[in-house]
Design a binder for these strands. Structure first.
Lengths: 370, 370
DNA sequence: GATTTTTGTGTGTGCGCACACACTTTTATT
DNA sequence: AATAAAAGTGTGTGCGCACACACAAAAATC
């Protein structure tokens, strides 16, 4: 039961060769006579030898630099600090394996910053890249360069059609919006109006919005509820309070039977404020467990939040690359994350178990290296 | 940016002492003059030295044996194979750190087997224990012995009041049942009857059932829905088809307005069969994402499954002990797992991302050592 | 047949750390 | 003051592996 670990020495003794020969067989390095190679292979099989990863890593002393290109999070409560934390925490866990991350942050609303940080990323010459390809054209340019340079990359949060990435780790938008439809409908009266609310500043990822809208609407089509509910779409090209509230006032006054709003980004709390001011009893569903949404959930001002496992996205991205480098294991090309349904009652467990918020740091993480 | 790792050598040079002294300071071993101790501590701080865990583990060559005492899973689709897989997979990940698990399976319905396997566990003299304390009295006896022997233990799945465990990793039952109430109610008409259905074979964990019932009922009380809904509890002391179906027939015939059933264990699929046979349109909510429930969800025969992160329970248990041994980090005493709301639409992502089912094994796991 | 080249194999060193041991200096004991 | 005991410090070895190197044996070249 308490079987000691099998080492390369054990294999060498068994096969009656030196450890150097074992090494050559394992790594297909140098020349080994057919005779001894067979003996070694047999010994490995018989002893069920598995190289000690710790010793191997220590001996190799190699480092893997992972470039991370994601939006800048202005505060710890911002959505993008969650995937960042997933990356940071998980990378710290693999630190001794030589995993090092270099972060490059771009402005969520500024293509130029994406380009310039992308260039910085390339110049840093990383061994692999994790990126959120939020700008279509610019991302294509960047991945082209990465391919030229032979640098593998994974996408998180958003996919790029035909993006040639090692793996995509993120949500399946159509399904997530379909779920949104089902959930929101469950708290609405039979006959009413529903609003799909897009708020976009600057460049919009049109394809993503389209998939979300189609997923949401298809729930009502498939269930035949389309006859009872009237579903509208409103796209506001701003996230400034005055603009949004103004547009909302206009829309709401024209649709008095409005009873439910589906906010297609993480700003549902914003709409909740509007409802507060006007004392409206309208059901609200949105994305992402950011601080303001959490508070609204607790106060019953938002009914549902769909969380797309942001922490796990970062975590899995690192794990995927780690496994790719250390175990040479090719990942599956699409890794859709769980679509977590968050309501007031399961909120606390979700947060505390995943330590999403408050933003906690361990001692190790506090001592940042610069 | 590409800062080389700080080693004990660097610290020694900086503090102008030998590596042996560094070692003494770090481990509080032997005597060190106040003067040099200060110098070393300062050097460690200034260089932000963090010992390389790989090298440390390798040098120590210590093994940690973790005894695992959980119910036997008759098939890969059984509920208890999921936490087992979480334990197995995660332990494999930490294998090179010397984490070794010894499994002891007991019969879910047989206290005697719990006792005998508990004895086997103790005799194996593990360094720590992971256990599911499903039998109250017997578990208390066992934990008493573990305390005597100075062996730390964590609970998964079920807690023991005042159990002195290092940590409890599992669901908060009252909340989970409260959520069950909210979800089930969302698919029910205003006026109807609801059934809380307990099925227990042999000894029942009465306290758990009580908390579940109270959580469920409290949703209807808090929301004032208690006036519209009539909530019944039925406890069947069997899981045999004839017995259960017989009892159900009796109950259902006496409650024609029954529209929703809350099954308090993982056997919701069983009730679904009954509804099928009698062509009843009754909404169903249950626990645990076992194979049969998955199928029922897909076919729309079960409306909701609440999943208590069984895989993560096992995973977290190992991680907790690993962190406790390797980092000497005292865990928090209660780690409530997320209460995942599973519906037909988010089912697939949940399963595939967590690789819960089908039961996949990696190459490494297949080559079991005996 | 003497040589170069290729193929085959073993030995030695270091990765970063923990720990045993040897050694020197200081303090306590008689 | 002579000895014993304790405090303080450095050196060396091994954990399991990768890899450079040395060297022997076989094959190829002249």
């Amino acid at each position: 039961m308490r079987n000691r670990k099998i080492t390369i020495q054990d294999v060498a003794r068994r096969a009656q060769v030196s450890t150097g020969t074992i090494d050559r067989v394992i790594h297909n390095r140098g020349k080994v006579s057919a005779d001894k190679r067979k003996k070694v292979e047999q010994a490995i099989r018989e002893l069920n030898f598995n190289p000690n990863l710790l010793a191997r890593t220590l001996a190799l002393g190699r480092n893997f630099h992972i470039g991370v290109l994601i939006p800048y999070a202005p505060s710890p409560q911002h959505y993008w600090s969650i995937p960042a934390k997933g990356i940071e925490t998980t990378a710290a866990q693999y630190k001794d394996y030589g995993i090092v991350t270099d972060n490059f942050y771009y402005d969520l609303f500024d293509e130029a910053s994406f380009i310039s940080q992308g260039i910085n990323l390339i110049n840093a010459n990383p061994d692999a890249v994790i990126m959120a390809p939020l700008f279509l054209q610019e991302s294509k340019m960047l991945t082209g360069k990465l391919q030229e340079a032979g640098i593998p990359y994974v996408f998180i949060d958003a996919d790029l059609p035909d993006g040639q990435s090692l793996s995509y780790i993120g949500p399946e938008l159509t399904s997530s919006a379909f779920i949104a439809g089902r959930l929101l409908n469950s708290v609405l009266p039979v006959n009413c109006e529903i609003l799909i609310l897009n708020m976009v500043k600057g460049f919009a990822n049109a394809s993503a919005l389209q998939r979300i809208e189609s997923g949401f609407r298809s729930y009502f089509q498939q269930t035949g509820l389309i006859s009872e509910k009237s579903i509208h779409t409103l796209t506001i090209n701003s996230t400034r309070k005055e603009n949004v509230f103004h547009e909302l006032e206009r829309f709401y006054s024209g649709h008095p039977a409005l009873k439910g709003v589906f906010v297609t980004n993480s700003k549902a709390f914003f709409i909740s404020k509007f409802h507060d001011i006007h004392k409206l009893d309208i059901r609200l569903l949105g994305y992402d467990l950011v601080e303001e949404n959490i508070n609204c959930l607790k106060e019953g001002k938002i009914d549902f939040i769909i969380s797309q496992s942001p922490f796990q996205q970062g975590q899995r991205a690192i794990q995927t690359l780690f496994s790719y480098f250390v175990y040479k294991k090719e990942p599956v090309s699409i890794q859709h994350v769980p679509l977590d349904i968050i309501i007031r009652e399961n909120l606390d467990f979700y947060i505390s178990f995943n330590q999403i918020y408050p933003y906690e740091t361990t001692h190790e993480q506090q001592q940042k290296n610069q």
